[in-house]
Design a protein around this nucleic acid. Structure first.
Length: 424
RNA sequence: GGAGAGAUGGCAGAGUGGUCGAUUGCGACGGUCUUGAAAACCGUUAAGGUGAAAGCCUUCAGGGGUUCGAAUCCCCUUCUCUCCUCCA
C-alpha cells in the first residue's frame, strides 16, 4: 500500500513506477474516487458537526431546567439526522472502493533497482566461491541411492509435490533448521520466534499476499490459511503497535514449514525437491528506521549469504530488475546457490526492502523521538534459507565417488555424523 | 465442548446516559534545584481523517441498535482470563 498523499500529489511518479514493473496502476480511477470521497467526507462531517453542537446545547438547556427550549432543539435535529443517514452509506461505499483500489497499487521500485521486465534482465552483483569440478549427479538420484528421501512415499501419502525425508535425510532437515537459527541468533543478532503456521486473512492482507494472490495459498475450512512463509506471521507480530525509535532495528528469525499451491508453476521444476507444496524455511524479518533501510538490506543479504559461506557452497547474488521482483518490493536481491548436478543456480533466498508498503498495511509505526509524531517503519525480509534447495546443493556438491555425502563441518554437531555413508 | 468474568490511552487502572478524548498512578519528555546525578517540586504527554488554516469529524475490542446525545443501556461477533470436561 502506498501513501495516499503520494498518489494524489505525484500521480505520474506512481504510474511510472508501476509501469517499470509492467503493471498498469489504476491511477486515474483512484484520483476520481478520491476526489468524490473527500467531497463526501466534508459534506457528511459538516452535518455531524451541526448535529453534535445542537445535542450539546440540549444538554446545557436540560441542565438549566429549560425543558421547553430543549424540546424545540430536539425537533431541529430530525432533518440533520436523516441527512446524515443518507450521506453515510455513500461515504462508506466510496471509502471502501478507494481502499480496494489502493490495495491494487504495487510498491514502487527504488532508483537503484534496474529496469527490466523479465528474469533475463536481473543483474549479477557478486559471486562467492567457485563451481566445483568433477562429475555430479542430480540430487534425486543421490537421495534415492542413500535412501534419505522417499519420493514415492510422499506421493502415496499426499500426492505430487510432497516427499518424505527418511533417516539421515530427515535429520539433515532438522540439523539445517537448528544450524541456521543458531547461526542467525548467536552470530547475527536475530531474536528467535516460532509462530503459528495457520494465519488469518488479515495477516495475509498485511503482507500483501491477499487479496491479489489468494490462488497461491491453501485455505482451510475455518477461514485460516496455511502460511506460504514465516514472513506472514512474523511481519504481523507487531501489527498496530507504535515502537520506540530506540528499539530499532528489531530483527526476528523464525522457522516454519511453508505451504504453496504453486498453481501458476505447474510443470516447472518438477524434478526432485526443487519445487514443492510443503517445505521448510528459516526466515529473517527486520523492522528498521526508514533512513537505514537500504543499508539494512545490504546487511540482511549478507546475513543470509553467511549461511552459504559457512557451508562452503558456491553462489551468486542477483539484483532483481523492476519487473521480476514482484508487487511488494522496492529493491530485492536473490541468492542463488550452485547445484552442480542440476548444472544451474537455484534460488534459496530473496532479500527485499519493502520500505513502508507492509507497515502501512499492518499499521506498524515508531516514534523517532519522544513526543514526535509516529512514522511507519520500513520492513525487510529474506530467507535464511529455504531448506530443500539448500539440500540439493549440499547433496550434489558434497557427494563423493563412493556415493556417500560429506557433511560440512558446521553441520556435524547437529547431524551427529561426519558423513552419510553409502548403503553397502 | 459446558459455566462464569472481562476487553478503556505506552503500561496500570477509574469512569455506568450530557463540556469525557476520558480522573489518577507509573513511564516518557521539558523545567526548577544540583558541580553532575538521584530525590523533590512544576509543567507537557493518544491516534487517524479532512481542511490553505482556524477548526471540524472519527476512535474507550469489532459490528449493529436505542437516544437529541453512548466508554456508559440493548443485541451479535471476536479475543482474554477462571472453573469444569476432553486431549497431543
Amino acid at each position: 500500500m502506498l501513501d495516499r498523499k503520494l498518489i494524489r500529489e505525484n500521480p505520474e511518479l506512481v504510474r511510472a513506477g508501476a509501469k517499470r514493473k509492467g503493471i498498469d496502476a489504476p491511477v486515474d480511477e483512484f484520483l476520481r474516487i478520491d476526489q468524490e470521497w473527500r467531497a463526501s467526507v466534508q459534506q457528511l462531517e459538516q452535518k455531524k458537526a451541526e448535529s453534535n453542537s445542537i445535542s450539546k446545547s440540549i444538554g446545557q438547556l436540560m441542565g438549566q431546567g429549560k425543558t421547553a427550549e430543549a424540546e424545540e432543539a430536539k425537533a431541529q435535529t430530525a432533518q440533520l439526522k436523516s441527512d446524515i443517514k443518507d450521506l453515510e452509506p455513500i461515504e462508506r461505499e466510496l471509502e471502501a472502493k478507494l481502499h480496494e483500489l489502493e490495495l491494487q497499487f504495487p510498491n514502487l521500485p527504488h532508483e537503484s533497482t534496474p529496469d527490466g521486465l523479465t528474469a533475463d534482465e536481473n543483474v549479477e552483483v557478486r559471486a562467492w566461491g567457485e563451481k566445483p569440478n568433477g562429475e555430479f549427479l542430480p540430487h534425486q538420484q543421490i537421495a534415492e541411492d542413500l535412501k534419505i528421501i522417499d519420493f514415492a512415499a510422499g506421493a502415496k501419502v499426499s500426492g505430487s509435490g510432497f516427499v518424505v525425508y527418511t533417516g539421515l535425510g530427515a535429520k539433515l532437515v532438522r540439523a539445517l533448521v537448528s544450524f541456521m537459527l543458531d547461526f542467525q541468533t548467536e552470530r547475527n543478532g536475530y531474536y528467535e520466534v516460532y509462530p503459528p503456521a495457520l494465519v488469518s486473512s488479515e495477516s495475509l492482507t498485511g503482507t500483501g499476499n491477499l487479496p491479489k494472490f489468494a490462488e497461491d495459498l491453501y485455505k482451510t475450512s475455518d477461514d485460516l490459511w496455511l502460511v506460504p512463509t514465516a514472513e506472514v506471521p512474523v511481519t504481523n507480530l507487531l501489527r498496530d503497535e507504535i515502537l520506540d525509535g530506540g528499539q530499532l532495528p528489531i530483527k526476528y528469525a523464525a522457522y516454519t514449514p511453508c505451504f504453496r499451491r504453486e498453481a501458476g508453476a505447474a510443470g516447472r521444476d518438477t524434478r526432485g525437491i526443487l519445487r514443492m507444496h510443503q517445505f521448510d524455511k528459516v526466515e529473517l524479518v527486520k523492522y528498521v528506521h526508514p533512513n537505514e533501510s537500504y543499508n539494512e538490506l545490504e546487511l540482511l543479504t549478507s546475513d543470509a549469504e553467511s549461511i552459504l559461506q559457512a557451508l562452503g557452497l558456491h553462489y551468486r547474488v542477483l539484483l532483481l530488475c523492476a519487473g521480476d521482483m514482484g508487487d511488494k518490493g522496492c529493491k530485492c536481491y536473490d541468492l542463488e546457490v550452485w547445484a552442480p548436478g542440476e548444472e544451474r543456480y537455484l534460488e534459496v533466498s530473496s532479500c527485499t526492502n519493502f520500505e513502508a508498503f507492509q507497515s502501512r498495511r499492518t499499521n506498524i509505526r515508531f516514534r523517532p523521538e519522544a513526543g514526535a509524531a509516529p512514522e511507519f517503519v520500513h520492513i525487510l525480509n529474506g530467507s535464511g534459507l529455504a531448506i530443500p534447495r539448500l539440500m540439493v546443493a549440499l547433496m550434489e556438491t558434497y557427494r563423493e565417488a563412493d556415493g556417500g555425502i560429506t557433511i560440512p563441518e558446521p553441520l556435524r554437531r547437529y547431524m551427529g555424523v561426519d558423513r552419510i555413508e553409502p548403503i553397502g
